[in-house]
Amino acid sequence: MKRTQSWIAKISAVVVAVFGLAMTTANAVEPVKAEFPVLVTSFGQAPDGNTITVLAKRIGAQLTYDTLATPEKVKEFKTVIVSIGVSLKGFGAAGVNLDTEIARAADILKVAKDDNIKVIGFHIGGEGRRDQMSDKIIETYAGDFDTLVVYKDGNQDGIFTKIAQEKNIPFIELEKLPQVSEVLKQILK
């Protein structure tokens, strides 16, 4: 077993060296592959969902972006990508607050579980999206995703790593932001 792990580490090092990809996985669970159609929504109204949608389009994947998607809308899709992170003024612009966002998130996750819809969480806003309110959403729901993709800058305290390990969730940590596109290719191909 130890020898196998050692080989995996060596191969990973070679991959990183050759391709410059310093993404790491915190556990041995494979990230889920998205099934289409795919919805992108936000838990917290930060604009990162738009980024994901645009980057996906550039690699040829057409996703539907709805920052305020309802549980009823979620039922129309086979996969939901959730961008996690609170923007206070985003709340104001959308006319929501933390309580309503948390309630919407709970409803969406319940529908997803009942209807066997895959949910992939992205936290790509870095440290800037690790305020108290973002953390409340992370602590409450990050354990309910089928895969977590996190930019390292937002995981300096290891909160996502811990949740992923405890819940045995496939976990991808990005060293650099441009790797979001690489991950989308993996998940959406």
Partner: peptide, 24 residues
Amino acid sequence: WKNGFPDVPLLFPNLARVFAKDAT
């Protein structure tokens, strides 16, 4: 710059090439 459009470097790599290393 960071608060203005945080995602711009990721979406516009040619701009990021000069102003936002590693899309940050």
